[in-house]
Design a binder for these strands. Structure first.
Length: 445
RNA sequence: GGAGAGGUGGCAGAGCGGCUUAAUGCACCGGUUUGCUAAACCGGAGUGCGGGUUCAGACCUGCACCGCGGGUUCGAAUCCCGCCCUCUCCGCCA
C-alpha cells in the first residue's frame, strides 16, 4: 500500500506504474473518492464539535448541582427558565444529530470504497527496472557456471526418477489430481538434504531459523499483498476463514505486524522452511510434465525487515541474492541472474531479481529463485513499524528471496548429474546429508 | 466440543453513563539539585485522518481511537445486541 498523500502528489507516476506492471486499478476514481472522504470529514468534524459542546452544556442544564446551574439560579433565573432553555437546546441537538446520521452512513460507504481502491494500487518500480511485458523481456545480468555437455542421450527427471523408482507421479495424481506427485527413498532424502543444507547456510550467515504457521488468517494475506489481487491463487479453508500460504514469506514478513520495533532490533533476518500451496489457477496446460509446476512443494525462504532507507534496502537486496547464489554454487548448478522487467513484477514489488537454473529437459534456464524488495509497501499494510533514532514512527522495509525450493531444484540436480546408465551422482556438498552416499543407482531402490 | 474469565496508551493496570483532556506505576525525553553516576523533585510526551500558517525544520487547530461492528442516549471505555480474539479448566488427540 502507498501513502495516499504520495498518490495525490504523484498520480501520473502511479498510473504509469499500473500500466507498466499490467495492474488494473482506477487512480482517478481513488482521487475522487479521496476528495469526497476529506470533504465529508471536514463537514462531520464541525458537526461533531457542535454536538459535543451542546451535549456538555446539556449536562449543566440537567444537573442542579453543576456550577453553571447554581450560577444561573443566583443570577435570578427560575428553574422553568432553565428547563425551557434546555428543551430548546435539546431540539437543536436533535437537529444536529439528524444531520450527522446520513453523513456518517455516507462516510462508511466512501471509506469502504477508498480502502478497497487503495488495496489495488501498485508500488511504482525502481528506475533500474527494465520496461517490458513478460518474462521474455527480463534482462540477463550474469551467467554463473558452465552448462555441461554430455556424450549420451539425456533423460529428464521424470524418466530418471521413475526408472530409479524414486518419483511416482502417477500415484500422486491418483491421490490428489494433476500437478501432484510422490517422492520415495533417495528422492525424498535428496529433497530433505537440499532443504537442510539451505537452512544451515542461512544460519551460518546470521539468519534465525523459524517454524511458522502456513495456515493463516486472511488479514495476513492482505497484509503481505497476496490478497485481494491473487486471491484465486490461494487454497482457502473457508469454514475457518483461513488461507494456506504459497510461501513462508507470508508468515515471516507478517511476524511482527502491528508491532512497534526499536531501530536497534533492525535488521531482522529470518529463514523458514515450509510447505507451499499453490492453486496454479490460469496455468492450465503450462509446464504439465514433471515436478516443475506443482501444487505443493517445500521451500526455504529468507526474509529481511530493515529500516526505512533505500540504501539499506538495496544493500539487503544484494545480500539475499548473494545468499542464494552461494547455495547454487555449492550445489554446482549453472544459473543466471535476471533483472525482472516491469510487466513481470508483482503489485508491491519495487524490484526483483530472479535466479534461473539450467534445466536440460527444458533446454533453458528455469526460474528457481525470486528476490524482491518492497520498500514499505507490505509494512504499511501490515502496520509493521519501528521507532527511529529521533523517536519518530516509521514503516519498515521488507525483502525476501527463495533460498531453495524443492522439488523444483531436483530437476537440475537430477538431470545435470545423471550418468549414461541412469544413475545420478550426488553433489559432494549434499553427501553429508545423505549418510555419505555418492550415487543414486538402481541398486539403491 | 463443553464451562468459566478477560480484551484499556510502549508495558503493567484502575475506571464501569457527564467530575476522563483515560488515574496510577514502570519505561521514555527535558530540566533542577548534585564530585560523576544514581536517587529525589519539577515538567513533557500516544496513534490515525483532516484543516490552516511557514521556503523549510516546525507550529497552530479539529475529529476519531479503550478488541471489531451495530444500537440506546443530548452525552458511552462505562449500558444493550452481534462478532472476533486471548487465557484457564474439562473432553478428544499427534
Amino acid at each position: 500500500m502507498l501513502d495516499i498523500k504520495f498518490i495525490r502528489d504523484n498520480a501520473d507516476l502511479v498510473k504509469k506504474a499500473a500500466v507498466d506492471k499490467k495492474v488494473t486499478c482506477d487512480v482517478d476514481r481513488l482521487l475522487e473518492v479521496d476528495n469526497q472522504r476529506r470533504q465529508l470529514q471536514t463537514e462531520l468534524d464541525s458537526l461533531r464539535t457542535k454536538s459535543r459542546e451542546g451535549g456538555q452544556q446539556m449536562g449543566s442544564y440537567r444537573n442542579p448541582k453543576s456550577a453553571w446551574y447554581r450560577k444561573a439560579i443566583e443570577s435570578g433565573r427560575t428553574e422553568d427558565d432553565i428547563k425551557a432553555e434546555a428543551d430548546k437546546a435539546q431540539q437543536e441537538l436533535n437537529d444536529i444529530k439528524q444531520r450527522i446520521k446520513p453523513l456518517e452512513e455516507k462516510e462508511r460507504e466512501v471509506l469502504d470504497e477508498f480502502n478497497n481502491l487503495m488495496l489495488t494500487i501498485p508500488q511504482p518500480p525502481a528506475a533500474e527496472v527494465p520496461l517490458g511485458v513478460d518474462d521474455t523481456d527480463n534482462v540477463e545480468l550474469r551467467k554463473v557456471g558452465e552448462i555441461p555437455s554430455f556424450d549420451f542421450g539425456l533423460k529428464d527427471h521424470v524418466d530418471l526418477g521413475e526408472q530409479l523408482g524414486i518419483i511416482d507421479i502417477e500415484r500422486g495424481v491418483k491421490l490428489a489430481g494433476t500437478r501432484n506427485y510422490a517422492l520415495k527413498g533417495d528422492a525424498f532424502l535428496l529433497h530433505q538434504a537440499v532443504l537442510r543444507l539451505a537452512v544451515d547456510l542461512m544460519m551460518e550467515r546470521g539468519y534465525t531459523p523459524m517454524q511458522v504457521p502456513v495456515l493463516v488468517r486472511e488479514e495476513v494475506m492482505y497484509g503481505t499483498g497476496y490478497f485481494p489481487v491473487g486471491r484465486d491463487q490461494a487454497y482457502l479453508c473457508e469454514r475457518d476463514q483461513m488461507s494456506l500460504v504459497g510461501t513462508a514469506e507470508v508468515p515471516l514478513t507478517a511476524f511482527y505486524s502491528e508491532e512497534i520495533l526499536e531501530e536497534s532490533q533492525l535488521p531482522i533476518k529470518m529463514v523458514a522452511v515450509s510447505p507451499c500451496f499453490r492453486r496454479e489457477a490460469g496455468a492450465a496446460g503450462k509446464d504439465t510434465r514433471g515436478l516443475y509446476r506443482i501444487h505443493l512443494f517445500d521451500k526455504v525462504e529468507q526474509v529481511v525487515i530493515c529500516p526505512n532507507d533505500e540504501a539499506e534496502s538495496i544493500k539487503y537486496h544484494q545480500e539475499i541474492l548473494a545468499n542464494s547464489e552461494a547455495l547454487m554454487q555449492k550445489l554446482e548448478l549453472p544459473y543466471r541472474v535476471v533483472n525482472v522487467c516491469t510487466g513481470d513484477l508483482g503489485q508491491g514489488q519495487v524490484q526483483k531479481f530472479d535466479i534461473e537454473t539450467w534445466m536440460p529437459s527444458r533446454n533453458s534456464y528455469g526460474e528457481t529463485h525470486s528476490a524482491s524488495r518492497f520498500y514499505e509497501f507490505q509494512a504499511r499494510r501490515l502496520k509493521l513499524r519501528y521507532r527511529d533514532s529521533e523517536g519518530k514512527l516509521r514503516f519498515c522495509h521488507t525483502l525476501n528471496n527463495t533460498v531453495v525450493a524443492s522439488p523444483r531444484v531436483l530437476i537440475p540436480l537430477m538431470e545435470l548429474n545423471q550418468n549414461a546408465d541412469g544413475s545420478i551422482n550426488i553433489p559432494p556438498v549434499l553427501r553429508p546429508y545423505m549418510n555419505g552416499k555418492e550415487k543414486i543407482g538402481p541398486a539403491n531402490q
